[in-house]
Every structure is written in structure tokens, then in C-alpha cells.
Nucleic acid binder design. Structure first.
Lengths: 188, 188, 188, 188
DNA sequence: GATGAATGAGTCTTCATTCAT
DNA sequence: GATGAATGAAGACTCATTCAT
């Protein structure tokens, strides 16, 4: 179905961009890692910028899909928060490069409109949930974006620490952090 | 007094590195922004790497100094948290590039030992406070680093939103977020 | 067959290095003369130093090969000297840049171990012949290296004059110089 | 009498040019070695090229003066040759950098007309002596320049070997080489 | 006169991109 | 489609030269 070479390129590029950043990653590096000729990359992507944008959209989309999968539409905001929280960490665990990648490149000067829109879509999904929780009177009456920061900001920071080895991940810890985040956003 | 050209270089480099990253920022870019010949940069800094390390240390040191200034040594953890929280935002407001810069480059492969040590010093300062709060039985019994994430991660994310204009800063909002963060780390 | 671009680069570099020295020759100069992009040079040679070493080894090897070709192994030192002498001038005539090049760069700080070894090999060849001649009692009992100077030093100086046009080469002159050199090294 | 700074510059430049060549020697290098500001060099010499030409002329002139000093005008060509030969080696011994310098830069693309003329003057001095010797019937009837090569070429090559340590200088050796050179140019 | 800070042209080298095979 | 040789623009950095002090 999907193209072999293209996938090899995307996979190689993902890891390299995540690790070395946009300007620190060269086309020859990607070509070598993907075991393709440098010229081949240009068959699949117009240029380096198109490649990273393609990856960014792919990753954010995958992330969003993971969060949406089996999302409890019941209206129970506590259960929804729990779902989102664990899905985020599961995604991070199973797709460390994607998460790294999203995190490192969000806001990058090379991202095009499409990438920004996809990221906004991801953000909207979170906002919608939060908004509902506020209407229900469960969550604090603060701008939804600020409540997202309390969760997403914490998550990103925590993930970095897990990755760098500064902090050890455990089921117990996740459970406690989940509660702490919940306490940060709910009305106490 | 302080050197004119050197300051111009540092200021220009700070902004560019913050915005475009290490590899995305070129010496000619810095020179142009600083209104200085490209060669002049090398009179003040051995090379590009020395320049960014110099900036990193300067910024983290300034940040740490701000947090420590008038820090309430009373042992009242609630007051200490409050102090740190507002100092962080004041610093961010008054030195937006420094904060951006610290955040974007922490962990960068081009940072030398001295830079890493200064950052650790900054981190230790936070850890010490947290540790004390845990001993007092006020803060949750979680790894200090994870508690830092709850505050620092939130802060960074929030600051980004203020900067990008996605969220409007207000005294009221800060007060509420401060409480939310406090609820996230204290034992309820 | 042999590579077109690589040969063009080698040829251009040879002439420029011979004329302007290592530091006085720039990569763009070589590229322009070779009618090649500057970057192309780096496909064939790791860097400028590798390029000049490659040339040095090539030239010395070619020179040595010329001297050894049809060398009279008869033990007749007079014939051997005659052979060497004319071979040197023939080589110089047919490969003026190589000779210039060898002469200008022998002892250069940029020469690597391999280059030095090849030059020593060349020198050893001459020394061996001289040593034999001394054992036979034909040549003066002086250090072989000093006898080499009498011939090689003269040769280099003479060649320079031929090249600069200060002196006109003729078969008659060569014959006489050959005799003069022979008189300089043989026991009279 | 002569200027202090200027002398320091000349001395420093001499050694550096001799050792590292024209393009391998930088103005800052010279300034540092001479313990002067880089700008000061431009008070005494119009530019780098003027500096090396000034040095070249100085060295060749000194060399020529040494050869002419106490030159036996008797017409005894043997004595004259002996004089020249030993003066050359004495000069080399006492002014190793000058000799190195002359040798390394003769023919350099940066030499101006004046330098070339001074070198020619030096050469003419030798030619005149040789010419006389030929007229007397003592020296071989070969172009004077070729006879000079037999002596000067040998000398330069020998001096290089002495300097590099490949060959040990001794009074005995000099005496023998002098005779060998004489045998090379005289009619036997 | 002397200095050295400042400069920008020029160095080596890399790399995104093209294109003939 | 796939390749990788070729290119030249651009990057980090150096250095001859100038000029304000």
C-alpha cells in the first residue's frame, strides 16, 4: 500500500529531526539512514521544508487520533481527563520520536500554514473537552488554554525528564501526577 | 562600563537563537542585527558555541538571581511558592528572550559543562525548596522533579501562550493559576 | 578509464601549487582552472591537505618509476649515473609541473606520513646506487647524501633556469653538465 | 640610528616568512612576535608585500656584501672560488634565516621588480667571476649560468640538509665538497 | 607615533538541490 | 523510478588593512 522508500525516508527523518533539530539535520544524513539516494528524497518531498511539515502533520495527526480513540463521550469529565492523560503517556511511550518531534518543532519558523492548522486542531480537541467541563461546573472558570497549560505543559516537561533519565517512570507516579493535574484544573 | 559592541552582539544573538535555534541562526544574521561586522563577533567570543554558552549562563544566572532576590527564608512554604511563582512571571515579562532562550536551549548538544552546571544550580534551588515543603508535610510525597514539572512545565507553556498572543495575561489569571499550581503540588 | 573531473582537478592543482605554493593556492582557484564547481573537489579529496598529499605521492612515484625504468643493473656505475641523469631531465621536460611541485613542497608542513615515506623511498633509491659506487672505489668517499646534493641540487637549479628561460637547454649542454656532475662525484 | 620597532618587525617577519612561507605568515603573527601593534607594521611598510620585498632585498644585499667582502681581486680564479664557497657557508651559518628566506622566496609571485633586480645583481656578481675564469681557460666552456648551478644548486641543497639535520656539517666535509664543486666547473 | 578595535573580503568547507544516466 | 555526481550559494571563521584614540 504505502510506499516503501517514502516510509523509510519519513522514519529516518523523524528520528534525526527529533534528535538534531531542523537545521542540524542534513538531507545526506536522512538519505543514508533511510538507505536511499539523496535525490530520491526529492521524488517524495518537494524540499526539506516540505518534508518536515509532512512529518509534523503526520505526528500531530497520529497523536490526536490516539487521544480520540475510544474517547468516552459519556460526558463524565473525570473519566475523559483520565483517558486523555493516560493516552498521552502511552503515545509518548510508544512513539517517543513523534512526541519529541512535535515538542521540538512546534513553533518552528519552517512550519507552514497547514502544520499550524493541524496543531490548532489538536489544541481545539482539548479545548472543547475543557469547555464542557467548565460548563458542567466541574472545572475551574479559567481560560481553557490556561487549563491546558496546566496539563499539557506538565506532561511535556515530565516526558522530557523521563526521556533524559532524570526521573523514573512508574505506574504509581503517573497515577499521582494524574491526580495532581486533576486537582490543578478542577474546582476544589 | 559595559562594552557597547559586546552588548549589541549578545542582545542580537539572544533574540535570534531564541527564535531560530542554534543551527538556524548564522553569524552574519547576528552581525547584521547587532550592526557589527561579522569579524567583530570573534573579538568577543571564540566561536559560535562560546557565544551561545555565554548567553545561556548569563540568562540562567539572571533568572536564578531574580528568584533568589528577597526570597522569604521564613520557612513558610506557601509564601515561598508564591514568591517563586510571581518572580518567574515578572522575569519572563521583563526578559522575554531570556526565558525563551533558556527554554529552547536547555539540553542543547552545544552546551558545555559550565552551562550545564549553572542550569543544575538553578534546578537545585527549586528542588531544595520543594524538599523542605515535603518534609513539612505540606507538599505531596512525589519526586521533587515531578513537582517541579507541575509548576515549571505549566509556567513555560503559559508563557509561550502569552508571548504568542494566544492567551491574554491578567493579574486575575495569574492569581488563579498560582492557586491551581499550588493545588497541584500541595496535599489536599 | 580514469576519471575526467578528478584528473582535471589534479592537473589544475598541480600547476597552481607548483607556482603559488600551498597557502597561496585557493580551492576556488583550483576549481576555476579545472572548470569544476568548488564543491566537486571535495567529492574526490577529503580536503586541501589530502589533495596536495595525493599530488605529492603521485609525482614522486612517477619520478621514481621513470628513474627505475630500464635502469642498468649491470653494476657499471658510470652507466647507471648516466641513466639517472638523463632520466631526470627527460622527466623534467615531460612533466615540468611535477618536478616543480616536488621541489617546492618537499618538507612542507602539510605533508603527511605517507608522503614523507614515498619521498624517502625515492631518496633511498639514489643512496643505494651511490653507496655501491663508493664500495667499488669509483665514487668519492663522502656521505652519500652530500654526493646526491652535488647532482640533485645542480639538477634542480638547472631545471629552474631552463624553465625560467634564463638558460637554453641543448643536448650538448646536457652532455657537458652530465660530465661535470660525474667529475664532481667520482674520484679523480 | 635605525629604528627600533622597524628592526623588531623585520627580524620577526624574517623568521616567520622563512619558516611558514608568505601566505602562511599573518600580520598578527608578525606583530605579536615583534611585540608591536598590528597597525604599527603599516607605519613602516605599505603592506605585507612591501614587507617581504624589503626583507628579500635586505637579505640578498647582505649575502652579496658578504661574498664581496675581502674578495681576492688577484685574478686567481681558484682562490676566488674558494673565497666564495666558504663565504657562502659562513653566511648560511651565521644567518640561517636569511639564507632560508632567500631560498624559499626566490621566484615567489609576490616579489616585485626591485627584488628581482637585486637578485640578478647577486647573480651577475657570480657570473662575472665565472666569465673571467672561462676566459683564463681554467673553467669549462659552458654557459656561466650552468656553472653557477653546479655550485649554487649544490650549496642550497647541502644547506637544506644541514638544517634539517639529515647531514652533519664538518670542516672536513666542506673541504671535500669545495673540491668536488671545483672539479665540476674547472677543466680537468 | 603607536595601538588595537573594527571591518568585510576572502578562506575552507558543507549541503540543499538538480539532472544525466 | 532511483541514483549520486555535480554544483554554487552560504556558513563559520580568519586576516590584511584602516582609523579613531
Amino acid at each position: 500500500m504505502s510506499n516503501n522508500k517514502e516510509d523509510a525516508i519519513l522514519e529516518a527523518a523523524m528520528e534525526l529531526f527529533a534528535r538534531r533539530g531542523y537545521d542540524g539535520t542534513t538531507i545526506p544524513m536522512i538519505a543514508e539512514k533511510a538507505k536511499v539516494g539523496a535525490g530520491t528524497i526529492y521524488r517524495y518531498f518537494e524540499n526539506k521544508e516540505a518534508l518536515i511539515n509532512s512529518l509534523f502533520i503526520r505526528s500531530v495527526t497520529k497523536f490526536l487520533k490516539t487521544l480520540k480513540n475510544q474517547f468516552p463521550e459519556t460526558g463524565d469529565i473525570r473519566a475523559q481527563f483520565n483517558h486523555i492523560f493516560y493516552r498521552m503517556f502511552n503515545f509518548a511511550q510508544q512513539n517517543p520520536f513523534d512526541l519529541h518531534f512535535i515538542n521540538a518543532h512546534t513553533g518552528g519558523y519552517y512550519l507552514d500554514q497547514a502544520s499550524k492548522e493541524v496543531f490548532n486542531e489538536f489544541f481545539s480537541f482539548l479545548t472543547t473537552i475543557i469547555d464542557e467541563g467548565k460548563e458542567q461546573g466541574t472545572l475551574r472558570s479559567l481560560p481553557s488554554k490556561s487549563l491546558i497549560c496546566l496539563v499539557y505543559g506538565t506532561f511535556i516537561n515530565l516526558f522530557k525528564m523521563f526521556e533524559s533519565g532524570d526521573l523514573e517512570k512508574s505506574q504509581e507516579l503517573l497515577k499521582n501526577i494524574e491526580e495532581a493535574c486533576w486537582d490543578a484544573i478542577r474546582i476544589i
